[in-house]
C-alpha cells in the first residue's frame, strides 16, 4: 500500500514544523525518516497517521485520499517511542484490544493473538503485565498490537529510542526480518543514522521541515545531496575553501575519515598534517590530525594500513584526499572532484 504525501505544511505557533513536504513511499518498502530533533520527521509521521492534522496539503494511502479521514478510519498501525501499552491489561489483552473493538469473535481473536505472540517470540509471556516485561519485550508487544488489526501501513515513531544500545541493535535486525515476513509498507522515524542505514530500504533525510534527500542508504552515504546530509549521515572533515582559493574553487571540500590516505612522501596533491593523537577503536585506527597545523582533521584506517605506515619521527604526515566532495551552490547532485584539484596552500 503506497503512501503519497503532497505539499504538506504544518506550523506550531511561530515554528514551521513542515514546509511544503512531498513524498512517495512505494508499496511494501521499509522507509526511515531521518533527521535531528525539530526537523519535522515526527510531525510528518503523525500527519500521515492523522494524529496531527496538517495546515495544508494532502495525504493518500493506497490511492485513497486520507486527508480528511480520522485516525481510526485510516487503517494504520502506529508504534510509539514509549510503547504506550495499556498498563492495566496483560500482553494478550493488549494485542487483542483492536480486535475486540472490531467485535471479532473470541476464538478468532485467540488464534490471531497466538500467532502474533509467536511472531514476536513472546509465546510464554501472554499473561504478564507490561510492567513485568523488559523494554525490548514491551516494544515487541506494541508492534504486535499494531499489527493485530492488519493495518495498511505501519508507522513507528522512534521505536528504539527508549532502549539501551545492545537491545536496540538486536531489535533493529529483528524488525528488518519481521518486515520481510509481513511485508507491510512501513515508515519509521529515527535520529540515528546508523539505525536508518541498517534497517531501511530507503532513507528520507529531513532538516528544518524540509526533505534534504531521498535515497537508498548507500546513495545517501556515498552521494549526499547537501552538506547537511553529508554531515548528518557520517563523520566528515571539512576543509574550508580558503585553503585552495588560489586555484579558483570557492567551495568547502568534504571528505570522510576513511576517504583519505596517509603517506610520508610529499606529492603535488598531498596536504601536510601533524598527528595529535592516535585512537584505537577496535580493529580501526583513528588519527586526530591538524591539517597545516591549524585545521582539525580525522583520518581512519584499518590495522594493516596502519602497520604499513612508517611513522615519521617529527609526527608530520602527508594527507591525500581520495574521495573529496564539494557542493557547488545548492545543487541537487553532489559534485565529485578529481583528487588533483586540491593543493596545499
Amino acid at each position: 500500500m503506497s503512501i503519497i504525501v503532497e505539499n504538506i505544511s504544518k506550523q506550531f505557533g511561530q515554528f514551521q514544523a513542515l514546509d511544503r513536504v512531498s513524498l512517495t513511499i512505494p508499496d511494501g518498502k521499509l522507509v526511515a525518516l531521518l533527521g535531528p530533533s525539530g526537523s519535522g520527521k515526527s510531525t510528518l509521521l503523525r500527519a500521515i497517521a492523522g494524529l496531527e492534522p496538517p495546515d495544508q496539503g494532502r495525504i493518500w494511502i493506497n490511492d485513497q485520499d486520507m486527508t480528511h479521514l480520522n485516525v481510526e478510519q485510516r487503517q494504520i498501525g502506529f508504534v510509539f517511542q514509549h510503547y504506550a501499552l495499556f498498563k492495566h491489561l496483560t500482553v494478550r489483552q493488549n494485542i487483542a484490544f483492536g480486535l475486540e473493538i472490531r467485535k471479532i469473535n473470541r476464538p478468532d481473536i485467540r488464534q490471531r493473538v497466538n500467532e502474533l505472540l509467536d511472531l514476536i517470540q513472546l509465546a510464554g509471556l501472554g499473561d504478564r503485565y507490561p510492567i513485568q516485561l523488559s523494554g525490548g519485550q514491551r516494544q515487541r508487544v506494541a508492534l504486535a498490537r499494531a499489527l493485530a488489526v492488519q493495518p495498511q501501513v505501519l508507522l513507528l515513531d522512534e521505536p528504539f529510542g527508549a532502549l539501551d544500545a545492545q537491545v536496540r541493535k538486536d531489535l533493529r535486525r529483528w524488525l528488518r526480518n519481521l518486515h520481510h515476513e509481513v511485508n507491510v509498507t512501513s515508515v519509521f522515524v529515527t535520529h540515528d543514522q546508523e539505525e536508518a542505514m541498517e534497517v531501511a530500504d530507503e532513507i528520507v533525510v529531513m532538516n528544518e521541515g524540509k526533505i534534504e534527500q531521498i535515497g537508498s542508504p548507500q546513495t545517501i552515504y556515498d552521494y549526499p545531496a547537501t552538506p547537511f546530509v553529508m554531515k548528518f549521515v557520517g563523520e566528515v572533515n571539512v576543509i574550508p575553501s580558503f585553503l585552495h582559493q588560489p586555484q579558483g574553487l570557492p567551495h568547502d571540500i568534504f571528505v570522510r575519515p576513511h576517504g583519505v590516505k596517509l603517506q610520508t612522501q610529499v606529492t603535488d596533491t598531498s596536504i601536510p598534517a601533524k598527528i595529535i593523537q592516535i585512537i584505537h577503536r577496535g580493529r580501526d585506527i583513528y588519527l586526530e590530525l591538524s591539517l597545516l597545523d591549524r585545521i582539525p582533521f580525522m583520518a581512519q584506517m584499518n590495522r594493516d594500513e596502519w602497520q604499513a605506515l612508517t611513522m615519521p619521527a617529527d609526527q608530520w604526515v602527508q594527507v591525500e584526499l581520495l574521495q573529496p566532495i564539494t557542493f557547488p551552490q545548492a545543487s541537487a547532485s553532489p559534485h565529485r572532484l578529481p583528487a588533483d584539484s586540491v593543493t596545499a596552500a
Binding site: E72, G77, H82, K87, I101, A146, V149
Partner: peptide
C-alpha cells in the same frame, strides 16, 4: 498516563466512549 495510550487506542479504532472506559478509567 500521557496521551499516547489514548492515541494508540484511537488508532486501533476505539470510540471516545471506549477509550474512556477501557484506557483512561482503569488508570
Amino acid at each position: 498516563l500521557g496521551s499516547e495510550p489514548e492515541e494508540a487506542a484511537r488508532i486501533l479504532g476505539a470510540t471516545p466512549g471506549q477509550i474512556f472506559r477501557r484506557v483512561i478509567l482503569p488508570h
